[in-house]
Amino acid sequence: MTSETTHIATSAEHSENHGMSDAGYIRIAAILAAITALEVSTVYVDFGPLFLPALLIMMVVKFIMVVSYFMHLKFDNKLFSLMFYAGLVLAVGVYAAFLATFKFFIQ
């Protein structure tokens, strides 16, 4: 929301050229599938103390991959990222504080 955004003249069509090929999308999907398999394996294989952090990290990686590549946020105008991540960061911050008041994280 700075005044510089006024002068960024990337159109949707223009950024399309910096997008990905269909093969690229399939590669991303394969990686996502592999991570999902790894996630599911945590139910059957004992990850010990790594269990929770590993799951959360894999979740975040999948999330960001879909947003960046499938939703094109990585290649698109920064304003889109700003609108979306503003909502996301606010949601995480506010609801984490909300759960913290219930002592959710120190159970």
Partner: peptide
């Protein structure tokens, strides 16, 4: 209104 303000300002009208 957010889209209006961000996208439809007259030429030369920066946010500030």
């Amino acid at each position: 209104l957010i889209v209006t303000v961000l996208n439809m300002r007259a030429p030369g009208m920066t946010l500030m």
